[in-house]
């Protein structure tokens, strides 16, 4: 589970940007379906069985909803199938609906993977390189959030034990929450002053800050980055030259099957399956190690006997 996420944050960021931008803005069913399948494969590696089930329960209805509602909004297309309330429901509109649904869900899945992999400290590292001040504001905010969570539980209890939480009615709950929130605001303001002093005491006002991180750029990071850039340039070249151009309206065009187009599709397929391959490879490696270790173990046991 850790293989891909242990890559250097910069490499990860470039990777996610490449996939998300292409998945969001290229109008081509093969690209969209590749992105969707890559997203499913990667997400599958990152989530537990229970999460997978709830994802399926969420995305499948969404897929159906988006696809069937599209003809209501869009009456373009040359192939009417039937008429509803005087408007044509076209084949193109239905196909386009499926296509948008695939695109939306693919992008959402990739965003989910991004959220799971690009944790706040990785993001802050990148952010802090260019914009140290906003980065320290973010870091402090992230430090305050769990602290405020704890404090809000304490305040809730203290106020409840003074009888300020009288009934279960909606309005009372709201009033009580506002009360807790207001206490929280006062508390954090005072705390903020103390934190600011602690920062100054440790030389925050000095000029020429540096920014430290635990990350190191490894050979494997370089390799992945190079592969990523090579693939994405190739894909962009393909898109720019029109080799994968596709349109739904007024008529669904054919998918170009020239050698160059196929190469572009394969390049994209490789790109979106990189994390999946890395995770799989890592698992196989681990299983190998484990069986080797246990084999060694049994050998030794036999010898001792």
């Amino acid at each position: 589970m850790k293989a891909f996420s242990s890559m250097h944050p910069f490499v990860l960021m470039i990777y996610f940007l490449s996939v998300l931008i292409t998945a969001m803005f290229i109008n081509n069913p093969i690209i969209q379906f590749s992105a969707l399948f890559g997203g499913i494969a990667f997400c599958g590696m990152l989530t537990t069985a229970k999460q997978k089930l709830s994802d399926i329960a969420f995305y499948i209805p969404l897929l159906i909803l988006i696809s069937i509602t599209n003809p209501l909004f869009s009456h373009n297309g040359e192939t009417p199938l039937f008429f509803m309330n005087g408007n044509a429901v076209t084949l193109e509109a239905i196909v386009y609906g499926v296509f948008i649904a695939v695109m939306v869900i693919g992008v959402m899945l990739w965003c989910k993977c991004y959220s799971l992999i690009m944790t706040s400290d990785k993001f802050l590292y990148l952010f802090g390189r260019v914009l140290p001040k906003p980065a320290i504001v973010m870091s402090t905010a992230l430090r305050y959030i769990p602290m405020l969570k704890r404090q809000s539980a304490k305040v809730k209890k203290a106020q409840k034990a003074m009888g300020f939480y009288t009934s279960e009615s909606y309005f009372d709950r709201l009033r009580f929450s506002l009360r807790v929130y207001s206490v929280l605001i006062g508390w954090s303001m005072e705390n903020a002053v103390e934190t600011a002093k602690a920062m100054n005491a440790r030389g925050f006002k000095l000029k020429n800050h540096t920014s430290y991180s635990n990350y190191k750029f490894k050979t494997v990071d370089f390799l992945l980055l190079a592969l990523n850039i090579a693939l994405i340039i190739f894909v962009f070249w393909g898109v720019g030259s029109g080799a994968v151009a596709f349109s739904y309206y007024p008529q669904i065009t054919h998918i170009d099957t020239s050698a160059f187009s196929l190469a572009v599709y394969s390049a994209y397929l490789i790109l979106v399956f990189i994390p999946f391959f890395i995770e799989i490879q890592e698992r196989i490696k681990w299983n190998c190690y484990r069986s080797k270790i246990s084999a060694l173990h049994t050998q030794r046991m036999k010898k001792e006997q």
């Binding site: 706040s120 400290d121 320290i136 870091s139 402090t140 992230l142 430090r143 602290m147 705390n191 103390e194 934190t195 002093k197 602690a198 920062m199 440790r202 030389g203 925050f204 000095l206 000029k207 020429n208 800050h209 540096t210 920014s211 430290y212 991180s213 635990n214």
Partner: peptide, 28 residues
Amino acid sequence: GQNPDGQIVTDKVWHELAFGLENMGEST
């Protein structure tokens, strides 16, 4: 100071340790 919570600036232990040194402009 006396309040353990109030003096912590950043969200991660390693960053907290490095915070003062970053301000001094030390190299990585």
